[in-house]
Design a protein around this nucleic acid. Structure first.
Length: 792
RNA sequence: GGUCCCGUGGUCUAGGGGUUAUGACAACUCGUUUACACCGAGUAGAUCGCAGGUUCGAUUCCUGCCCGGACCACCA
C-alpha cells in the first residue's frame, strides 16, 4: 500500500477473485442461522449493465452485506430477465436478423444461444465488478426451463381456479407488417392531418363534431359529451344520424369527453383509439370493425369498401364537402403512433387474448399493499394510485415469437381449450402434441396451438416461486415454503408492474404476500439533472466510472442517495469517495505503524480520553446500525464518514499521537487498544458500502489477529464495554479548536509551543485529560484565568 | 391531466417548531508536523423558493402559488 497510488483496479480484482474462489457469499441451506431472504430483481438484459442497474444493485448489496454481518443466513440469489420483447429486439439488433422473416423455432434457438453465451455472461461481469455479494450459483433466467415450467404451471393453476379467461380484445396492429405489435414497438411521429368539423343530425338539427378520422364513421357506435356540459345536456338519450352512412347512434354522457376539445362532443368508433375502446367496454357498445387486417375498409364502409384507409379518408371528406356536411377543415400537425419498423400508422384490431381476472380484487389489493412495509413509506401511494386507476383485467397475451408460450391448444372445431398436463411442462404447443387425442367436447381430432406468448411480467412476477424452486431439494425448503420473503428491492418505475403483479400472483396462488418489506432504491439522473437517456445523450456507463474511479467509489455515490429519491450524477461526490478511501488507507497505516508491539490485550485501565472516545464510538455504532436497519444508507454513511474524519482523524489521532510515540506501558496500551478496536469497528461499518477497500485494509492489517476469513464474514461491531457522558470529550475538542484558531491567527505552525490559560471551571472539567490536552496543543503549562494562548 | 417527491451559502447537501443552521467542493489566509499536500488549521459566504395561516416563537407544521424532477395516464 504505497502512498498516493492506491491501485484500485488491481486491488478490486484481487478481492473479487478471492471472494469468488473462497465462495464467501455462498448460501448455506444447512445452516441453522436465521434466514434473511431477498427477492432478486431480475434485470432485463438489454445490453451491458447500465447506471440504473448499478445504483439499485449496489443499494441492495448494502443491506445484504449488513444483514450477513448481523448474523443472518442471507439468501440472495441472482436472476436475469431474458424474456419477451426486449430480448427479441436485442437479438435482432445484435445478430442483424428479423424475427418475422425467420422460422419461429430457429429464432427461439438463436435467442437461447445468444442469451446464454453472450448476454448473461456480459451482464454478470458488470455485476461482479461492482462487488455484488449474491450467490451466483443460485442463478435463474426467466426463460430457462425451470422458469418456463413454473410460469406455465402458474397459468394452469390460475385457469383452474377460474382466474383466467379468453376474450376478444383490441390489439395493436401494423397493417403493413401484418402483425400485432407491442406498445414498446411504437414510435411517435408527427404527421399532417385535417381536423374536420362534420355534421350529424339530431331531430333534423345539426350536431357538429370534430375529428381527424372521418373514415371510421361507418364504425360509429355512439356519441359522447361530458356530463357537466350544458350545451349538450338536452340531447341525453336521443339518437344522432351518422352522415353519409345514415344510421343512428345513441348520445351518451362520459367524463372522458373533453369539453374544450373540438366541439366538446365526440363520436366513438369501436377501435378508433384508447378512449374509444374504453367507451366500448364500459358502455357495452357493439364492436364494429371498419378496417381489415391489411388496412382496407371493410364491408360496413359500403361504397368505400376495399379502399386504403387514407384514400377512404380523402374521399369521405370530399363527399361530405359536396353534401355540405363538412363545415370546416383545419390543417393540423399531430402526433400519431407508428410502427417503428416501417413507419405505418398503427390500428387496433380485435384478437382473442388471455386475461387474468383481478378487477374484482381491488379492495384486497389495497389491503395486501398495506401489509407490506414500504421504504420509503410514501411509495405505497404509487401502488394505491395504480390500483384505483385499474380499468381492465390483466391481458397476458403477447403476439411475438419469443417468450414463454401458453401451454394451450384449441379444438379446431369447437374452440375448446385444451390444457397441457402438468407433468409435461414446459411445453411449446407449436412443437409439442396436445395432451389429448380427441376433443372432449366434440371428438374432433384436430387442434390449433396457441401461438401467442405470455407477457414478461407473467413470469417475472413469479420470482419468489422460482427462488423457492432453486432450493426445493435442500433442508431449508420447508422453512421458506409458503412464507413471505423478507424483502424485495427495486426501482420506483416498476412498482406498478412488477411489485403489483408479484403481489397479485402470490396472493392468487398462495394467499400470502410475496415479501414483508419493499425497498424502493434511490436512483441516479444524468449530470444535467434529467433521467439518463439516449435521446438526451446524458448517459454515463458504470463500466467507465469503475475503470476511472473504482467500484468502491461508484458504490459510495450510490450510498449518497436517499431511498426513493433521485440525485444528479455528481463528479464531486466521486472525488469525495476517492478521498475517503485515501484517508482510510493513511489512517490505517498510521494506526498499524504504532501497533507493531501490541499484544491485542486490554489495558488494565483505560485512559480517560480513550474511554470517552470509545463511548463516542458506541453512539456511532448505535446510530449507524439503526440507519442500516431502516435502509437509510446515506445517513449511515454520513455519520460514519463524519465520525471517522472529524472525530477520529482530525482529533483523536492528534490527541494520542505524542502518547503513543513517547509513552510506554499501560498508557500506550490504552491508546493501542482503542486504535485497534475503533478502526476495526469503523471498517466493519464501511464494509457493506465499500467492500473492496474494507477487505484490503482488513486483510492487510487485521487478518493476522482476527479469525474471520473475510471482513464480510465477520460480525457487525458490538458496542465497547464503556458507558458514560461525553461532555468532557466535547469540551476538549472545543478547546483544541480554539487553540488552533489562535495559532492560525498568529500565523504559527500547529505544533508551536504555547502557554495555555483556561477558565478555572473548564480546567477543572478537563483535569482527567490534562496530559493529553497539553500534548495535543503542545502547551508547556496550563494556567488559570481568562482563555489565552501565549507563544513561547 | 392525475399522483408523488424536491426547493437550504457560488455549487452540491444534512437537519426538521426555540440550533451559533451540518458537511463537502470551490474561494481566501496560514502551516511541512515521525498517517496523509490526494494533507492539516483557520476565514469569509445562507433574509432556509414566494405569499398567507397556526403558534409566545416557523427554515421546520398547514393552505395556496411558483420552480425543478419522477411516475402513471392521455392526446377525438
Amino acid at each position: 500500500m504505497s502512498k498516493n497510488n492506491y491501485d484500485f483496479n488491481t486491488v478490486e480484482e484481487k478481492w473479487r477473485k478471492f471472494w469468488e474462489k473462497e465462495k464467501i457469499y455462498k448460501f448455506d441451506p444447512s445452516s441453522n442461522k436465521k434466514i434473511f431472504s431477498v427477492d432478486t430483481p431480475p434485470p432485463t438484459i438489454s445490453g451491458r449493465l447500465h447506471m440504473g442497474h448499478a445504483f439499485g444493485d449496489a443499494q441492495q448489496d448494502f443491506f445484504v452485506r449488513f444483514k450477513r454481518m448481523r448474523g443472518f443466513n442471507v439468501l440472495n440469489p441472482f436472476g436475469t430477465d431474458n424474456n419477451g420483447l426486449p430480448t427479441l429486439k436485442l437479438v435482432e439488433k445484435e445478430k442483424k436478423v428479423d424475427s418475422r422473416k425467420m422460422k419461429r423455432e430457429d429464432f427461439i434457438d438463436l435467442c437461447n444461444k445468444v442469451i446464454h453465451e453472450e448476454f448473461i455472461p456480459m451482464f454478470l461481469d458488470g455485476v461482479k465488478r461492482l462487488g455484488i455479494s449474491a450467490d451466483f450459483d443460485l442463478f435463474y433466467s426467466t426463460i430457462d426451463k425451470r422458469s418456463r415450467k413454473i410460469s406455465q404451471k402458474s397459468f394452469l393453476d390460475l385457469y383452474k381456479i377460474g382466474r383466467e379467461y379468453r376474450l376478444e380484445a383490441p390489439a395493436l396492429w401494423c397493417p403493413n407488417c401484418q402483425t400485432t405489435i407491442a406498445q414498446m414497438e411504437l414510435e411517435d411521429k408527427e404527421v399532417k392531418s385535417s381536423f374536420v368539423d362534420i355534421v350529424f343530425k339530431v331531430d333534423g338539427k345539426n350536431l357538429i363534431i370534430s375529428t381527424t378520422r372521418p373514415e371510421l364513421l361507418p364504425a360509429s357506435v355512439a356519441m359522447f359529451y361530458h356530463p357537466k356540459d350544458k350545451r349538450y345536456k338536452h340531447l341525453k338519450g336521443k339518437n344522432a344520424t351518422v352522415p353519409l352512412f345514415n344510421f343512428e347512434v345513441p348520445i351518451l354522457e362520459d367524463e372522458r369527453a373533453e369539453m374544450d376539445k373540438g366541439t366538446g362532443i365526440a363520436y366513438c368508433a369501436t377501435f378508433g383509439d384508447q378512449t374509444d375502446m374504453e367507451w366500448q367496454k364500459i358502455h357495452k357498445l357493439p364492436i364494429k370493425e371498419a378496417i381489415t387486417l391489411d388496412g382496407k375498409m371493410t364491408s360496413i364502409a359500403g361504397e368505400y369498401k376495399g379502399m386504403d384507409i387514407k384514400d377512404a379518408r380523402r374521399k369521405i371528406i370530399n363527399d361530405l364537402r359536396e353534401k355540405k356536411l363538412l363545415l370546416n377543415e383545419k390543417k393540423i400537425i399531430h402526433i400519431v403512433n407508428v410502427c417503428e419498423r416501417c413507419g405505418t400508422e398503427v390500428e387496433f384490431i380485435s384478437h382473442k387474448q388471455w386475461f387474468v381476472k383481478y378487477l374484482d380484487l381491488k379492495k384486497d389489493m389495497l389491503k395486501w399493499g398495506k401489509e407490506i412495509k414500504w421504504h420509503p413509506r410514501y411509495m405505497r401511494q404509487r401502488y394505491n394510485n395504480w390500483i384505483h386507476g385499474l380499468k381492465w383485467d390483466w391481458c397476458i397475451s403477447r403476439q411475438i415469437p419469443f417468450g414463454i408460450p401458453f401451454p394451450v391448444w384449441y379444438c379446431k372445431n369447437c374452440d375448446e381449450v385444451i390444457l397441457a398436463k402438468e407433468k409435461d411442462l414446459p411445453v411449446d404447443p407449436v412443437e409439442d402434441k396436445p395432451s389429448v387425442k380427441t376433443c372432449p367436447k366434440c371428438n374432433c381430432k384436430e387442434f390449433i396451438p396457441e401461438k401467442d406468448i405470455m407477457n414478461t411480467w407473467a413470469t417475472s412476477s413469479l420470482t419468489p416461486t422460482i427462488i423457492h424452486d432453486l432450493l426445493k431439494d435442500t433442508k431449508i425448503s420447508s422453512k421458506i415454503k409458503n412464507k413471505p420473503m423478507d424483502i424485495r428491492r427495486n426501482g420506483q418505475d416498476i412498482i406498478t408492474f412488477w411489485d403489483f403483479n408479484t403481489i397479485v400472483k402470490s396472493q392468487l396462488h398462495y394467499k400470502i404476500n410475496p415479501w414483508k418489506e419493499l425497498y424502493i432504491n434511490g436512483w441516479i439522473l444524468g449530470r444535467d439533472g434529467h433521467k439518463m437517456s439516449k435521446s438526451r445523450g446524458n448517459g454515463i456507463s458504470p463500466d467507465d466510472v469503475i475503470k476511472e474511479w473504482g467500484a468502491d467509489v461508484l458504490r459510495y455515490l450510490s450510498s449518497s442517495v436517499k431511498p426513493g429519491e433521485a440525485v444528479a450524477f455528481s463528479d464531486k461526490e466521486l472525488v469525495a469517495g476517492k478521498k475517503f478511501i485515501t484517508k482510510l488507507l493513511n489512517a490505517s497505516k498510521f494506526v498499524f505503524m504504532n501497533l507493531e508491539d501490541y499484544n491485542g490485550k486490554k489495558p488494565k485501565k483505560l485512559e480517560k480520553i480513550d474511554e470517552l472516545f470509545l463511548i463516542k464510538l458506541n453512539n456511532l455504532i448505535q446510530e449507524a446500525t439503526n440507519y442500516f436497519e431502516i435502509y437509510e444508507f446515506s445517513k449511515a454513511k454520513a455519520e460514519i464518514e463524519k465520525f471517522f474524519w472529524q472525530i477520529f482523524c482530525d482529533n483523536y489521532l492528534e490527541i494520542i499521537k505524542k502518547r503513543i510515540y513517547n509513552e510506554k506501558g499501560d498508557k500506550r496500551i490504552s491508546a493501542q487498544y482503542t486504535l485497534y478496536q475503533s478502526l476495526l469497528a469503523m471498517l466493519k461499518m464501511i464494509a457493506p458500502l465499500m467492500p473492496f477497500i474494507a477487505e484490503e485494509i482488513y486483510q492487510g492489517y487485521f487478518k493476522k489477529t482476527q479469525k474471520d476469513k473475510s471482513i464480510h464474514l465477520s460480525n457487525w461491531p458490538e458496542k465497547m464495554g464503556v458507558k458514560g457522558k461525553t461532555e468532557t470529550f466535547d469540551l476538549m475538542i472545543e478547546v483544541i479548536s480554539k487553540v488552533r484558531q489562535k495559532k492560525s491567527k498568529a500565523k504559527k505552525a500547529m505544533n508551536s509551543e504555547i502557554i495555555l490559560t483556561l477558565e478555572k471551571k473548564q480546567a477543572d472539567k478537563l483535569k482527567s485529560v490534562v496530559d493529553d490536552l497539553m500534548a495535543v496543543t503542545n502547551a508547556q503549562e496550563i494556567k488559570s484565568g481568562r482563555f489565552k494562548v501565549e507563544f513561547v
